[in-house]
Amino acid sequence: MEWLTYLLEVSVCTTLFFGFYLLVLRKLTFFKINRFYLILSLLLSLIIPAFQVNIEKAVEPLPVVNVQPGLTVQEEEPTQPPLQVMPAEDAAINWFAWLEITYILVAVALMLICLWQLFQLLKHTKEQSQNINGSKLISKQKGFTNCSFFNYVFINQDYLTESELQVLLKHEQVHASQYHSADKILMMICKAVLWFNPVIYLYNKALEQNHEYEADEVTSLSFGNKDYANLLLKLAIAKSDMPLVHNFVKSPVKERIKMLFHSKSKNMKKLMYLLVLPIAIGLIWLFTVQVVYAQAEIKHDKTFQDTLKKPLSKNKELALPDVKQTDPYFTSKDYLDKLSSMNEVHGKTISGAVVGEYKIGEKSSFMRGYLFKSGEKTYVL
């Protein structure tokens, strides 16, 4: 269940972050910032639900119940055992087990497809290439053409003039210098993990558009918007089925041309990116922070704490009055012998029998007790 909860929370995060992008950021011409926003928000969506921060909150202590020594509280046993519905529980467990297996199989299959496409692409990078300004130009007439993967550029030179080739190379060099291919690999992994979430495919499309907008903006500064737009229209019929490459006309050409002639956003509008902070903080509080209610510690003064440290006793011991000055018996050998015997067995358990009554004084009103004999010695109780 934890993995399902995590994936659902990630989906909620991606939905809110991308919704903010569509409503606020999509029309801005800060393409590089938009690119980093999409990547960062996607990574945050994966990270936020994975962490757990506990915040302790004190609550009022429960009332203390004083129980007299010797008394015990016993809970009543239930008269009937709790009802157990085993078939329904087993069915639920099996359902979640099948759901987990299905998710893993689809995710692994998509990852294997991604690795196979990457392997096929790397095979073409071993072909003979021509190094132009740090880009490795590979002539290719079939399959994916007029596209790039990192600094490898696949060109069909049969339909391009020299000037058009320079424009296309400049465009692909922007992709290579900004490491746009790394973003595409990251998106392939995210699509394999979150294949059930439709928002992840919108993320992929938006990120790909920002890659092209950024490359179009830099290239058009060198060759002009009009000539560059004409080249886009000329190559618009070319198609590519390789998702890991940046095709020159893969993204919607109409949107790219409109963005070329779109007025640039003012720098003050960069403050709009700060509006995402409440969304991020809210998601962190919702999925990462957990409030734990703990009972507050009761603080007592020193006198009360010292009292708690004293051992409890059933019987309260009373101090004897100072009678040594009035009754000479307390200095007699008989009393001193009995006192010495009592001190020897104080705190111990002995066996014996009561053999008589013990009295002090003629009126027998000052002290009363019993004589307890154990073995050869007699003690006073």
Score class of each variant (00 low, 15 high):
Trp3Lys: 08
Leu4Arg: 10
Val12His: 07
Thr15His: 08
Phe17Tyr: 13
Phe17Arg: 00
Gly19His: 09
Leu25Tyr: 07
Arg26His: 15
Leu28His: 04
Phe31Gln: 02
Lys32Met: 10
Asn34Gln: 14
Arg35Ala: 14
Leu38Gly: 01
Leu40Thr: 13
Ser41Leu: 06
Leu42Trp: 04
Leu44Tyr: 15
Leu46Arg: 01
Leu46Met: 06
Ile47Leu: 06
Ile48Phe: 03
Ile55His: 00
Lys57His: 03
Ala58Ile: 04
Pro61Met: 04
Pro63Tyr: 01
Asn66Ile: 05
Asn66Ser: 03
Gly70Arg: 00
Gln74Ile: 10
Glu75Gly: 09
Glu75Thr: 09
Gln80Asp: 12
Leu83Lys: 12
Gln84Ala: 13
Gln84Val: 15
Val85Thr: 06
Asp90Lys: 12
Phe96Ile: 07
Glu100Tyr: 15
Glu100Thr: 15
Thr102Ile: 14
Tyr103Asn: 12
Leu105Phe: 10
Val106Phe: 15
Ala107Arg: 13
Val108Ser: 03
Leu110Asn: 04
Leu110Cys: 04
Leu110Val: 03
Leu112Glu: 05
Ile113Asp: 08
Leu115Asn: 11
Leu118Ile: 00
Leu118Met: 02
Phe119Thr: 09
Gln120His: 05
His124Gln: 06
Gln128Leu: 03
Ser129Val: 07
Asn133Cys: 05
Asn133Lys: 11
Ser139Val: 08
Ser139Thr: 07
Ser139Tyr: 07
Gln141Ile: 11
Phe150Val: 00
Asn151His: 05
Val153Gln: 01
Asn156Lys: 05
Tyr159Cys: 11
Glu162Trp: 05
Gln178Arg: 09
Ala182Val: 14
Ala182Gln: 11
Ala182Leu: 14
Ile185Trp: 01
Met187Ile: 11
Met188Asn: 02
Cys190Thr: 07
Val193Leu: 10
Tyr201Asp: 05
Asn204Ala: 15
Tyr213Leu: 02
Tyr213Ser: 01
Asp216His: 04
Thr219Glu: 06
Lys226Glu: 13
Asp227Leu: 09
Leu232Asn: 00
Leu232Ala: 00
Leu233Gly: 02
Leu235Gln: 01
Ile237Asp: 07
Ala238Gln: 07
Leu244Asp: 02
Phe261Glu: 00
Ser265Phe: 03
Lys269Ala: 07
Met272His: 09
Val276Phe: 11
Leu277Asn: 00
Ile279Asn: 06
Ile281Gly: 13
Ile281Thr: 15
Ile281Ser: 15
Ile281Glu: 15
Leu283Gly: 03
Leu283Gln: 08
Leu286Ala: 12
Phe287Arg: 01
Val289Lys: 10
Gln290Gly: 02
Gln290Asp: 09
Ala296Asp: 07
Glu297Leu: 13
Lys299His: 12
His300Arg: 15
Thr303Trp: 11
Thr303Lys: 14
Phe304Met: 01
Thr307Glu: 07
Thr307Ser: 08
Leu308Gly: 03
Lys309Asp: 07
Glu317Arg: 13
Ala319Glu: 14
Pro321Gly: 12
Asp322Glu: 08
Asp322Phe: 04
Asp327Gly: 01
Asp327Thr: 09
Leu336Thr: 15
Asp337Phe: 06
Met342Gln: 13
Asn343Trp: 06
Asn343Phe: 13
Glu344Tyr: 09
His346Ala: 11
Gly347Phe: 06
Ser351Tyr: 11
Glu357Phe: 15
Tyr358Phe: 14
Lys359Ser: 09
Lys359Val: 11
Ser364Gln: 15
Leu371His: 10
Gly375Pro: 00
Lys377Pro: 00
Lys377Arg: 10
Tyr379Val: 01
Tyr379Asn: 06
Tyr379Glu: 04
